[in-house]
């Protein structure tokens, strides 16, 4: 397998009982890229993420990460080898403070969570503050995460994923619930992380301006089938993509 391919799926399929939600998806993502998977609701975008990250078991086909097969691995093992994700609906620790949320993820990455006797508050202070700073959450560090605004919860979701220092970051509608200003800030951060540390990013999104503004590669899913792939310009010109995505020109 080509070393530049960070993620590859071969004939990846998923069915829930008799419903086929993903069919024979052959997908390749190159290292260091920002790519997006687009498609209407129910196209199978989140299912694709769920299969790659071990959230659902794969019904057919294989998933490879950096050349290693990871099909149906346990979620924590997939996270440990370098794939993390942010969820569509923010998935955080509502009773912990924003600071404690981020610290928890950092301590897990540093493999310090089995430490029984050093107070957690003494550990990973600077790393936590830095990550809160770059995700724009410093002002809320002592706020219980459950009462943050929807946009801030999404930022925290991103911070939790970033704290794991992944090689591949999957973002499921990262800007849903954010204002246009927050959307821009978040996507700028994503772009900066990609540029500065070479983080590979795969995201799903409905906001056309975000998709065409940031993605270097687009893949179009429709009813669980990968119908088109290419640069944003190529996809824009693709009649099949236009037909099944919005039913009109994109």
């Amino acid at each position: 397998m080509n070393d530049d391919i960070i993620l590859q799926t071969d004939h990846l399929s998923k069915s829930f009982f008799k419903y086929q939600v993903l069919t024979d998806v052959n997908y390749q993502l190159m290292r260091g890229m920002i790519a997006a998977i687009i498609g209407p609701n129910g196209a199978g975008k989140s299912t694709f993420f769920n299969l790659v990250t071990g959230y659902h078991t794969v019904s057919g086909g294989n998933v490879f990460f950096k050349g290693q097969e990871i099909t149906n691995w346990a979620r924590h093992k997939i996270a440990k080898i370098g794939i993390t994700r942010a969820f569509q609906v923010s998935n955080i620790y509502p009773k912990l403070t924003t600071y404690e949320n981020v610290r928890q993820s950092i301590l897990a990455q540093q493999k310090r969570t089995l430490n029984l006797f050093i107070p957690a508050e003494r550990l990973a202070k600077q790393e936590t503050l830095d990550l809160l700073e770059i995700t724009g959450l410093s002002g809320f560090r002592n706020t219980e995460a459950g009462i943050l605004s929807q946009g801030d919860k999404k930022k925290l979701e991103l911070a939790l994923a970033l704290a794991s220092k992944p090689d591949l970051l999957l973002l499921d509608e990262p800007t849903a619930g954010m204002s246009s200003e927050e959307t821009h800030e978040t996507m700028q951060l994503v772009k900066r992380l990609n540029k500065e540390i070479g983080l590979t990013i795969l995201f799903t999104e409905h906001d056309i301006s975000v998709i065409f503004g940031y993605a270097q590669k687009l893949s179009v899913l429709h009813q669980g089938i990968l119908v088109a792939e290419g640069t944003p310009e190529e996809v824009r010109q693709n009649k099949e993509a236009q037909a099944c995505y919005l039913g009109e020109e994109i």
Binding site: T84, Y93, K95, Q104, L107, A108, Q109
Partner: peptide
């Protein structure tokens, strides 16, 4: 109060997310 104790709170609050941070 240790990182282990906070991991327990994390499991209590959101087991799913805790798996996805590699625990």
């Amino acid at each position: 109060e240790s990182p282990f104790g906070y991991t327990l709170r994390a499991i209590r609050d959101n087991t799913e997310r805790t798996e996805f941070i590699g625990i």
